[in-house]
Design a protein around this nucleic acid. Structure first.
Lengths: 197, 197
DNA sequence: CGCCGAGTTGAACTGAATCAAGAAACGTGG
DNA sequence: CCACGTTTCTTGATTCAGTTCAACTCGGCG
């Protein structure tokens, strides 16, 4: 079944049997995306939360000078959305793009409410997701406030070793808030150090 | 009544009458803090969410090099907490300190659950708070990724004109992720520009 | 085969950090 | 309420991490 990862994800966290969840998910579409296809573009209203069944998504913004800033990489079993756009009904300032050929479950905005009604415990699960999100953002702010280019890169390797191998360096750089050239130099330095030790 | 701001805040958002809310808040302590007094210190477990009735709180971290990084300023009617510590039961990596003489309502960690039970609509209000928090953090990340020292300062003035006047520059600098010296120069430059125009 | 985006490297530049010193503002205890 | 020490703010000189610009290589894809 094409939504298997999402079903696992929910049934594991909700302790609700797979068949019932499968039933609830019936009217969520699954979309197959080619590499570089967009799920959301700047100024659009974000209509869905996306669950990545397969592949890799990237959420990013483009600033006034035309520079890309990667907000998030979302590999298998991750959720992506522009909560600001969804929740406050604003046009989004982000792009969400498939970085690889991907399968995505499109979760409508009202779906969470529906789920809350049918599964009481879903509310607290949703809460957990929000808290996780907050934790994640908070840590990133801390990193941006305190760490050098090298430290950021090391932290990134530690946290997302798999992603490093799946995206071009230029995008890692835009996640870390440094230029691709700087990242290239940081890597060179690290290689030198590791060779010495 | 000493919790009046919190009562207003909740009754406005919950459309629940003041007396009932007042009753529910009965077992929340109010604490008066002298300037520089701490509500939370690094490595402690955060036991409360704090609602600022009066005064100004600051949440910050200290990195390995001993530098302070301001996470948040919380003036009247703001909530502060280390959600990561509260929710995931971890020792906190933050300090929460009174920046002025302040009155704070201490909201116990189970209080939100209690409220959810008694006021069904509270759940969605809480949701809104979490989304707001996420929006706030997300915007800050965007700023840190894309804006220069001067831009950050201008954004700060725009967003928190009142706070600017209530805290030393050194703390604004630590919020913006720049040194106090740099902030001083940015201000000087801006003063020059404004004089010309 | 030829092209284009990604990565590397070098040289010059620059925004911000660091270090240092002096002036002003603050607060604490006598 | 004054006096003293501490913190904050400013300014200058210097340094440095990271950016910018430009040239060249490499690997993949049409």
């Amino acid at each position: 079944m094409e939504k298997q990862n999402l079903i696992n994800f929910l049934s594991k966290n909700l302790d609700f049997n797979e068949d019932k969840i499968s039933l609830l998910l019936e009217d969520c579409q699954v979309k197959n995306l080619k590499k570089h296809e967009f799920l959301l573009q700047e100024s659009e209203f974000c209509q869905f939360t996306f669950f990545v069944e397969k592949g890799l998504l990237r959420q990013y913004s483009i600033d006034e000078k035309g520079k890309e800033h990667t907000i998030l990489f979302a590999p298998e079993n991750w959720l992506v959305s522009d909560r600001e756009s969804v929740y406050f009904n604003q046009p989004s300032s982000y792009f969400i793009q498939a970085q690889e050929e991907s399968d995505v479950v499109m979760i409508g905005n009202n779906f969470f409410e529906i789920l809350s009604e049918k599964i009481p415990e879903f509310t607290s699960f949703n809460n957990k997701l929000l808290h996780n999100h907050i934790r994640h953002l908070q840590n990133r702010i801390n990193m941006l406030l305190s760490a050098s280019a090298e430290d950021r890169y090391l932290q990134f390797i530690e946290m997302y070793p798999d992603i490093l191998l799946r995206v071009p360096q230029i995008m890692v750089a835009s996640y870390l808030g440094i230029t691709p050239e700087s990242l290239s130099r940081v890597r060179k330095e690290l290689a030198k150090k590791n060779f010495k030790n």
